[in-house]
Simulated assay, not measured.
Amino acid sequence: MPARPHGPRIAIIGGGIGGLAAAAFLRRAGLNATVHEQAPALSEVGAGLVVAPNAVRLLRRLGVMKAFLRRAVALEWGWEFRRWADGGVLSVEALTDVCEQLYGERTYVIHRSDLLDAVRSAVPGAWIRLGERCTSVEAGPDDVSLSFADGSRTEADVVIGADGVHSVVRSGLAARPSPGYSGVCAFRTLVPAHAAPEFALRPAQTIWLGPGRHFVHYPIAGGSAVNVVAFAPAGDYTEESWSATAPTEEFRAEFADWDPRVTDLIVAGGVPGRWALLDRSPLRHWSRGRVTLLGDAAHPMFPFFAQGAAQSIEDAAVLARCLAASPDDPEQALKRYESARIPRTTRLQEISHARRDANHLPDGPEQETRDTALAASDPLVTAGWIYGHDAEAALTT
């Protein structure tokens, strides 16, 4: 890595949403960085995600909202819970105007690749190096040495591991127990708008709850497709891979007894992806010396609160602020970043695990109590600590 004229030499390992967000916020803070991405092109596998106000306000500060809104869909209803057998509405939250009044921003749904493109628009192309797979990270007394699969090496003053759940950077920081079996796997597919039933095209995040399973859908890609993601018993399936697939019939069989509108969506989609949700305990520390982590590398969480991407964006904003405040003392900056972020991300990891059990209750008294509570609650208000959070403002208080 060539010497930088100002500030520390910062290397970001991973060019996903979190890695590019880190680069974008560092640039906004007046620092420079190099993003090392192992793939030959920047892309996001997977499908849709929810972008709540806590992330939207940070994207707005980056100046990428114009690019973001080209393909994002603003939710008019959110958290529309339905009963598995007949689609009866258990709870629904009107978001139009209300979300913006409470938190200053709306809630959107978007394809992962469209969010990646929006964030990338704030990163200079010269900062991004493709086809560079990091294989090891070695910290020295004054800098950090990075090795890559092609035999090349480089040095940096600060290394940020944004390389996902199977992070190479994290593996070099500390020993960590192997992930545990959660008993849950996820299916995902995309349904073209022309093949989707009308009810699935509404700007709503619809969540069907049933025994041992739940099923989610919402429109993405400017309304041209419907994102479908569902959770079911894993059996002996343990493959944690975004590229693994399953037969459509296997997906459909998991929901065979559900409302026909659910199975119709499954059949209308393409070949589904399938991955196991593995259980990982929160880390007590994710920085050592001049090396740190963000996003899934630091705090992988079950997707039941739809905060994975949002938390990586929050990480990026806070990390950039910390490094800009102490450019000559990166170790202290990383300690400040870690202490600012771990309590919040740990809480989200824990409640995401708890949501799994609540979503999958079998029919009976507990399920009826849950449904009564859903009907009486206002999720937009009760989750205010998530959506109302301003990661940058919280750092200064």
Score class of each variant (00 low, 15 high):
126 A>L: 01
121 S>P: 06
92 V>Q: 13
117 D>A: 14
130 L>M: 06
139 A>F: 03
79 W>S: 10
86 D>I: 05
79 W>M: 12
116 L>N: 02
104 G>I: 02
129 R>N: 04
130 L>K: 02
92 V>A: 15
104 G>Q: 01
118 A>V: 04
103 Y>L: 00
140 G>F: 03
129 R>G: 00
129 R>L: 10
141 P>A: 07
80 E>S: 11
119 V>F: 02
95 L>E: 12
72 A>T: 05
73 V>G: 04
86 D>M: 02
104 G>E: 05
140 G>K: 00
131 G>E: 03
142 D>W: 04
116 L>C: 05
96 T>V: 13
75 L>I: 07
121 S>G: 10
134 C>V: 12
107 T>W: 07
88 G>Q: 12
73 V>N: 08
103 Y>G: 00
140 G>S: 06
90 L>I: 10
111 H>P: 06
91 S>Y: 04
85 A>K: 14
116 L>P: 06
76 E>W: 10
139 A>C: 00
98 V>Y: 14
88 G>R: 14
78 G>I: 06
104 G>Y: 08
116 L>K: 03
133 R>P: 05
90 L>E: 09
107 T>M: 14
83 R>A: 13
131 G>C: 01
74 A>G: 08
117 D>W: 11
124 P>V: 01
123 V>R: 08
93 E>L: 05
110 I>K: 03
110 I>E: 01
133 R>Y: 06
95 L>K: 11
107 T>D: 03
118 A>H: 06
129 R>D: 01
124 P>A: 01
82 R>G: 09
113 S>P: 03
77 W>T: 12
75 L>K: 07
119 V>I: 15
75 L>V: 05
86 D>Q: 07
129 R>E: 09
91 S>E: 08
118 A>F: 06
119 V>E: 01
124 P>L: 01
128 I>E: 04
101 Q>H: 13
81 F>R: 05
113 S>E: 09
124 P>N: 03
92 V>P: 01
112 R>Q: 13
77 W>Q: 15
109 V>A: 12
92 V>G: 14
122 A>N: 10
102 L>W: 08
85 A>G: 07
110 I>P: 03
133 R>F: 06
122 A>K: 08
122 A>E: 09
112 R>V: 04
129 R>T: 04
81 F>W: 13
124 P>T: 00
132 E>Q: 12
120 R>C: 10
80 E>V: 15
103 Y>H: 09
114 D>V: 08
90 L>K: 09
88 G>V: 07
95 L>A: 03
76 E>S: 11
